[in-house]
């Protein structure tokens, strides 16, 4: 007989839920019947390189930072849930000649891919559109399985992109990460660690940048004031479209830093190489 710490036991059970999610993903109904699913479960310190690269990219992008901060905090508290990586080679076409990829036939598409396969911010391409649709269904089944176990889960591009670049699931052109957990309620929405990451002003600036019309004064004059402060009519502020050299430079340097880390982790760059 034994008495278990309930929360610790439940945390351990998340690994079993993760396995169940992979079973569900494998049973997903697809359109092409040609998706060869790859999956991997990552736990604890094996997530560190992914989190590190994600945090590096996050230095210049809120999207990656949002996830990186959450994962870092969970890792620090020893509450990092098991993370399922799903991947597939979405380059091989369905052979339907449908045209959705931009080529008239799958043959023309294949010819193009032979010399033009490349990588974007987190996926390889080109991609057969129907394979991408099917891969979505596969991942959806995994999410639905987690939901039926009442486990927190959130399918993440950010984790998948870093994992792909770090060489997980070799041969996959797209990888997505699905944390199964942590224990708790709505933790991927209400992120404790995010509370202090951005200031109130930064948060309001993000809102303004995402929807400037919401804070726009009378636009009939042609150059409307953007209401960015209480007495917005005094020393008014305006919207301007311009090139941002400083941001671009920061972005380039930041990506270079992230790629250097990726090369070190994957062994492409030795310790002594600069």
């Amino acid at each position: 007989m034994a008495i278990y710490n309930g929360l610790e036991a439940a945390h351990e059970h998340l690994l079993d839920v993760a396995k169940a999610c992979i079973i569900a993903a494998g049973k997903a109904p697809t359109l092409t019947h040609r998706v060869e699913l790859m999956a991997e479960i990552i736990t604890g310190e094996d997530m560190d390189p992914i989190i590190d690269v994600l945090a590096t990219l996050g230095e210049n992008s809120a999207f990656q930072l949002h996830d990186a901060v959450a994962l870092q905090s969970l890792r620090k508290q020893n509450k990092l849930p098991p993370i399922v990586l799903f991947g597939a080679d979405l380059l091989k076409p369905a052979l339907w000649d449908c045209g959705a990829c931009g080529f008239k036939t799958c043959g023309e598409y294949l010819k193009y891919t032979q010399t033009n396969k490349g990588v974007g911010i987190g996926c390889y391409g080109p991609t057969c559109v129907w394979k991408a649709v099917d891969f979505g269904t596969v991942c959806d089944y995994a999410c639905a399985c987690a939901a039926q176990h009442h486990a927190e889960a959130r399918i993440m591009f950010s984790i998948g992109a870093c994992a792909l670049l770090l060489g997980h699931l070799e041969g996959a052109t797209m990888v997505l990460g699905l944390p199964i957990g942590p224990l708790g309620k709505n933790l991927w929405f209400d992120r404790e660690a995010w509370k202090e990451t951005l200031s109130f002003d930064q948060k309001m600036m993000t809102q303004l940048a995402g929807g400037p019309t919401n804070q726009m004064a009378f636009s009939g004059g042609g150059n409307p004031i953007i209401k960015s402060k209480p007495n917005w009519w005094e020393d008014p502020t305006f919207l301007k479209v311009e090139q941002d050299e400083t941001f671009i430079e920061k972005d380039v340097n930041n990506k270079a830093k992230a790629y250097e880390k990726i090369m070190r982790y994957t062994g492409a760059l030795g310790e002594d190489e600069e």
């Binding site: 109904p29 359109l31 449908c98 045209g99 959705a100 990829c101 931009g102 080529f103 996926c123 391409g125 991609t127 559109v129 991408a132 649709v133 099917d134 891969f135 979505g136 269904t137 596969v138 991942c139 959806d140 999410c143 797209m174």
Partner: peptide, 15 residues
């Protein structure tokens, strides 16, 4: 085509 593939990928979840 071509279409935005990551948008199309969303349709998979919907299905």
């Amino acid at each position: 085509g071509p279409v935005c593939v990551i948008r199309a990928h969303d349709l998979g979840y919907v299905i």
